[in-house]
Design a binder for these strands. Structure first.
Length: 961
RNA sequence: GGUCCCGUAGCUCAGGUGGUUAGAGCGCGCGGCUGAUAACCGCGAGGUCGGAGGUUCGAGUCCUCCCGGGACCA
């Protein structure tokens, strides 16, 4: 029987599938965006401009989950801004030069294996096609290097060629991976730091800096990698635990009858000893040993030293640190050399003796204090870490260490101490020590001549610090501390690297006297050749082509020069993209937003700020957003050895990019974030709920079209106007959260709203939507609300889950809608939607609902008197003011409470009673008979007959007036 | 080793300037519906707010130390 009536109902229907099948279907929408040129249209429209300048990932290997987090966040911002009507600029970039790629190319075995593996992975044919070419280039480069050595320009050219191809390959791979994430951009408009145009522009930037006096040549100790035979920048250093020698020795005072006690963990640097540093504020003791010798060390360290060295003896005197300044000591290794006592603030007694061996050629602090005292910067070690002849030539008592490694030389130094009788103790110590980030090998400090960018020239640092405080917004606000500290503390920028794969620093050297210089004119001329397509011009072309007519050496007046082949630090490549890309391509300067991980305060944000300030005298960004790192479910960093790595491809292939993106939106990204199976499971659940909500909305709009069927707000039913008022709130808040980049609040707001909709509003709407007259006011009113909710929800979610919302968008019943949701405009809802009074009333009604529901639950679960709420009758004696509220909404109370009968009475009767804040409630099974069509119970309805409400509906009318 | 950040229910997150029984959603348990159905609805149980001290009439919120995790730096 009931079946007959079912056909007369307006049951929800839609073709929008319940299951997303994201891994399969997402690429369809990605292709759609590309084919329709969605982003091209967004970046070309007439509207205010919004720039997000992309920080370039390194083109070596697959993207990891951190890259995915980063690009997803950027995509949220860009898509949102586009939705709000901006013309958006988002040019994806890649960082191509540098040691890791050069190393990969020269380490053929590992690399070839990796490339072979790539052929088996899910990559495009285009990528596979590139592999062979890369492999043969690598082979050629390696063969040439073995035959002719690294310094040969042709070898360098071949290494560069192989590197270029290798980098291009990974750019292609990563591009596909970002595409699969759903990033909305113009894939034909990207930037590579190895683009000739960018290299040329970068060379010009360097020329300009040279002209303006920022660039100088300096000789100072720097972290040096023996493996890569290059100085390293701070960003290329990692710290690991390392076991080092712990050497205690004595140095004889030439002015007094005592020795000083010195401690070092780098015995090999004793060859470069030029002084001993004491702390100006510290007290020192004169300690008499049983053998009669007196030894000086820090008073604070007395107990520790006694214990460590097992010394018996007694304190026979005290001296202030300042008293040692200028005192002469014998060099630890060489009797014929003198090392003076000096004062340094950094000397402490935490470890060692409170007396520090100073080698200005082997340590940064040593160098700094050496400058103050005019000490020689002595660094008798070559690029492989072997001693040079200067190590022996400095004395008449050489240790003959030329050509020996620092380890062997260090042993000889210790033997010498023993010969001299000044050796005390040799032990071992484990401590954190700088290592080469690629080779994981300990670094040494070695003084070399390098090109520097001065941070204090023209007050660059000061200007940058001011800009940090005044001209840039930092999100989260605390991140300003990081950038400020990193700019304040950073040393002058070491620009030069002795490698092949990079942008050349086209310095020239006088063949007569060795004077080395940068000539702006050379650089500008070279830039033209690079721009024309020859990145290797500095290698392949004769110097005459670039050197100005009649150029003479400033030192000796000579006219015979050679080229130098140092390359630029890769941080200069990426740091200068604010000029080479933003200005070079006439995009605009500064960028509205930079958005990267917080390691970039030392890296890209810092480098970009320096270049930007020096070049444009204002920062390259208006807002800088930082995110944390991705950790595993237990909060540990991901690592191959722990086996807890979650690659983005895993998530995308298993759940879909929208799920990965929804995860990004759900977490507090300004801190470190976690990912793992349980977390993803929760996200998948949330995704399903959201998707189902879209589906339910669509399914109730199958016979509705906007704008034709859209009802005026003022004609709508109160419940539906309340729904619109809530929607207005949510929509306004959502935009606020987007504007504040608080995506996790946005996610929670929207998700909780979805939950609220489905448990309250949708639930209460069912009778009206399903059983009322299809075209009647009641149903159209509800549909109008649903339509607005759907539209608003899709727009609000579209930056986060663009594939799902795109799919749903195709079903949204709007005439002449934009081809893609990404092309739609998310405008503010009309103020007329807002109705605070309705919101107040309904929040009370909802609270009342929650007050009776436990009683209904008893009826259902314990007493088995009802099944669904529609079987129930509610009687209430309202308290205080609440009676008036209930009266006002009397026609809608059944609907709101989901029951068949709702009675306001002074004597509530029923099977279950409950007293609450709003009234005394009694609930029971509804009386009378159940309408076979709408399933509602009516007190005086003859059995088997259709209720008056349904009768009206069948006649195309609404029962309630 | 130094500096900074984080640590609230199983999970993800809220909890201005310290003040009633610490909140949400999910998950979990129990129940309903079978006209959103590999959906939907209801009810319920979960937290010594990392630990220990301290300041205070009163602390998740302020201070100190410790533990765990992370980042940056040397």
């Amino acid at each position: 029987m009931a079946k007959d009536y079912k056909d007369t109902l307006n049951m929800p229907r839609t073709d929008f599938p319940m299951r997303g099948r994201l891994p399969k279907r997402e690429p369809l929408f990605q292709r759609k965006w590309e084919e329709k040129g969605v982003f091209k249209r967004l970046k070309e429209r007439e509207a205010p401009l919004f720039i997000l300048h992309d920080g370039p990932p390194y083109s070596n290997g697959h993207i990891h989950i951190g890259h995915a987090l980063n690009k997803a966040l950027k995509d949220f911002v860009v898509r949102y801004k586009a939705l709000r009507g901006y013309r958006v600029s988002f040019v994806l970039g890649w960082d191509n030069h540098g040691m890791p790629i050069e190393k990969a190319v020269l380490d053929s075995k590992k690399t070839l294996k990796r490339l072979k593996n790539l052929l088996k992975e899910k990559v495009s044919d285009e990528v596979k096609g590139m592999v062979e070419d890369v492999v043969s280039s690598i082979d050629e480069a390696i063969k040439a290097k073995e035959e002719r050595g690294f310094e040969d320009p042709e070898v360098k050219r071949l290494i560069r060629e192989a590197s270029r191809k290798y980098a291009a390959l990974w750019v292609e791979v990563q591009k596909e991976e970002f595409k699969r994430l759903g990033v909305l951009t113009d894939w034909e408009d990207i930037y590579l730091t190895m683009d000739p145009e960018i290299e040329a522009k970068e060379t010009e930037v360097l020329a300009k800096f040279t002209e303006e006096g920022y660039i100088y040549r300096g000789y100072m100790p720097l972290p040096w990698s023996r493996e890569s035979q290059s100085a390293l920048a701070m960003a290329e250093i990692e710290y690991y635990e390392k076991e080092s020698p712990s050497l205690w020795f004595l140095a004889k005072s030439l002015d007094n009858d005592y020795y000083i006690l010195v401690w070092t963990t780098t015995p090999w640097t004793l060859f470069g000893n030029r002084a001993f540093a004491f702390s100006p504020g510290m007290e020192y003791v004169l300690f008499r040993l049983p053998d009669g010798r007196t030894v000086v060390f820090s008073a604070e360290a007395l107990d520790r030293i006694r214990e460590t060295l097992g010394w018996e003896g007694e304190v026979v005197g005290r001296k202030k640190g300042t008293e040692f300044e200028g005192e002469k000591f014998q060099h630890p290794l060489f009797k014929d050399r003198v090392s003076p006592g000096i004062l340094a603030d950094f000397v402490s007694a935490e470890e060692g003796s409170g007396i520090v061996h100073i080698a200005p050629g082997h340590g940064k602090e040593d160098y700094e204090i050496g400058k103050v005292y005019g000490l020689e910067v002595f660094s008798p070690v070559d690029e492989r870490g072997n001693f040079t002849k200067e190590a022996d030539e400095q004395t008449a008592h050489p240790l003959n260490v030329v050509g020996l490694s620092i380890e062997e030389g260090g042993k000889r130094a210790i033997e010498r101490l023993k010969e001299l009788g000044t050796f005390v103790k040799l032990g071992k110590i484990r401590h954190s020590y700088p290592h080469d980030w690629r080779y994981k090998k300990p670094l040494i400090f070695r003084a070399t001549s390098q090109w520097f960018l001065s941070l204090d020239h023209k007050d660059l640092r000061e200007r940058a610090l001011k800009a940090i405080l005044n001209d840039v917004k930092w999100h989260p606000p605390e991140s300003i501390n990081r950038i400020y500290a990193s700019v304040k503390e950073r040393p002058d920028w070491v620009l030069s690297r002795q490698r092949a794969w990079g942008v050349f620093i086209p310095a020239v050297v006088c063949n007569n006297c060795g004077w080395e210089t940068l000539v702006p004119e050379v650089m500008y001329r070279l830039a033209e050749d690079i721009r024309a397509g020859n990145s290797d011009a500095w290698l392949t072309e004769p110097l005459d082509r670039y050197l100005p007519e009649g150029f003479k050496c400033e030192e000796c007046g000579g006219g015979d020069f050679s080229k130098k082949y140092d390359i630029l630090d890769v941080w200069f490549d990426s740091g200068s993209t604010c000029i080479t890309v933003l200005k070079g391509r006439n995009i605009g300067y500064p960028s509205d937003v930079y958005l990267e991980g917080w390691d970039q305060h030392r890296g890209w944000f810092n480098a970009s700020l320096m270049v930007g300030m020096a070049h444009e005298d204002r920062p390259p960004y208006r807002t800088v957003i930082t995110h944390g790192f991705v950790l595993d479910e237990q909060g540990r960093a991901m690592s191959k050895s722990l086996g807890n790595v979650v690659p983005p491809s895993y998530v995308i292939e298993k759940y879909g990019a929208d799920v990965l993106r929804l995860w990004v939106a759900s977490v507090e990204y300004t801190q470190d974030v976690r990912i793992g199976e349980e977390i993803l499971k929760r996200i998948v659940d949330a995704y399903r709920k959201i998707r189902n909500t879209f589906r339910y909305l669509l399914s109730n709009l199958y016979d509705f079209t906007a704008p034709t069927d859209v009802m005026d707000v003022n004609d709508m039913l109160p419940v539906d106007r309340y729904a619109l008022s809530r929607l207005h709130d949510v929509s306004t808040k959502a935009k606020e959260y987007y504007d504040a980049y608080e995506f996790n609040r946005l996610y929670r707001l929207l998700y909780n709203y979805v939950v609220e909709l489905s448990s309250f509003y949708f639930e209460s709407l069912k009778d009206r939507l399903y059983t009322w007259a299809p075209q009647g006011r009641g149903r159209r009113s509800a549909q109008t609300a649903l339509y607005y909710i759907l539209r608003e929800l899709l727009l609000a979610f579209s930056p986060i889950i663009p594939h799902t919302t795109e799919e749903a968008w195709e079903y949204v019943p709007i005439e002449n809608k934009p081809e893609s949701i990404a092309l739609a405009l998310w405008e503010d809802l009309p103020e007329s939607f807002k109705d605070p009074e309705l919101e107040r009333d309904f929040s009370t009604l909802v609270a009342m609902r929650e007050e009776v529901y436990p009683a209904l639950e008893v009826l259902r679960r314990d007493r088995k008197l009802i099944g669904q709420n529609l079987d129930a009758r509610v009687e209430v004696k309202p308290k205080g003011e609440y009676g008036r509220l209930l009266e006002r909404y009397l026609p809608y109370l059944n609907e709101l409470f989901g029951v068949s009968q709702f009675v306001i009475t002074d004597e509530p009767a029923g099977d279950e009673r409950v007293e609450g804040e709003y009234g005394i409630w009694a609930v029971s099974h509804a009386k009378g008979n159940k309408c076979p069509r709408c399933w509602m119970w009516w007190e005086d309805l003859p059995e088997g007959e259709v209720c008056p409400k349904c009768k009206a509906a069948l006649e195309g009318r609404d029962y309630v007036t």
